[in-house]
């Protein structure tokens, strides 16, 4: 893998066409690091001119803002904007819908204006441009895949089709859950829920959602968000189906189909 940092490029007087915003989960979470790497491999394979911030990256502040700590959110946002503007970043791609939403919708008011796209849209564009070709669909051809909408892509930003088009490129049999797109059920970990236990109730949200996904009969549950990844994986484990059902990110599916 070739993973340039923005600082490296800057030292050479260059700047990347697109900054890959890795996010905290993509940097630290063992499971999501695999998504990060899969996405880097794809970008390497198609020759995307990208770079990462490396240790200069920092939490966007999303969970702080959603939990209610506006001071902390804005401290983080301002610091990040200083770094991004300092490097003259124009375009950002990220594999985290929460980072995506925050940088795209909430940084402009604080002085951070960038073209921000989620990796599902980025992959869809690569497919449309013919840069990713999957002859015969590869290993997923005809296999049942269901897609779990991330709230922060779907309802929050109206991105419903890009992830589905990526899956269609796999020539897989895309089966929808009853609650999908605008009525897609949350995995349970948005709004800073990832960082605390759920309130008392009769069921965990991710189990409700995992049951729905398993009900489709799909052996692969495609996700596009680190929190959905954790929640759906835990849900599948709770139903003791981890042996035959896997939860995978779009980038992983593409990388796998391409043999990367």
């Amino acid at each position: 893998m070739n993973i340039p940092t923005v600082a490296d490029l800057a030292a050479k007087g260059q700047s990347p066409e697109v900054l890959f915003w890795v996010g905290c989960a993509g940097s630290y979470d063992d499971r999501y690091k695999r998504v990060t790497k899969a996405f880097v491999k794809i970008m390497n394979a198609v020759g995307t001119n990208f770079a990462v911030l490396g240790t200069e990256e920092s939490c966007t502040g999303d969970p702080a803002r959603r939990a209610g700590n506006e001071f902390l959110f804005q401290m983080q946002a301002m610091a990040n904007i200083q770094v991004l503007n300092g490097y003259g970043i124009k375009k950002i791609v990220t594999a985290c819908p929460h980072c995506f939403n925050t940088i795209k919708n909430e940084y402009p008011e604080l002085g951070g204006n960038y073209e921000v796209i989620h990796h599902s849209t980025f992959l869809q564009q690569l497919i449309n441009e013919g840069k990713i070709k999957l002859e015969g669909g590869g290993s997923f051809k005809g296999k049942k895949i269901t897609y779990h909408d991330s709230c922060y892509l779907g309802r929050a930003n109206n991105i419903y089709e890009a992830p589905r088009q990526v899956l269609e490129a796999l020539d897989a049999d895309l089966v929808e859950m009853k609650r999908c797109k605008t009525t897609g059920l949350c995995c349970g970990a948005g709004g800073a829920q990832m960082f605390k236990d759920a309130e008392k109730g009769k069921k965990e949200i991710n189990i409700e959602r995992a049951e729905e996904a398993l009900h489709t009969g799909a052996k692969t549950i495609a996700v596009a968000c680190p929190f959905c990844m954790t929640m759906m994986t835990d849900g599948v484990k709770n139903k003791e189906r981890e042996a035959d059902v896997s939860v995978k990110d779009l980038a992983e599916l593409i990388a796998e189909a391409k043999g990367l």
Binding site: Y28, K33, V52
Partner: peptide
């Protein structure tokens, strides 16, 4: 600078 207890200097270790 991350919601989990990880060291900021380890942020780029994945690479």
């Amino acid at each position: 600078f991350a919601p989990w207890k990880f060291s900021p200097s380890d942020r780029f270790n994945w690479a």
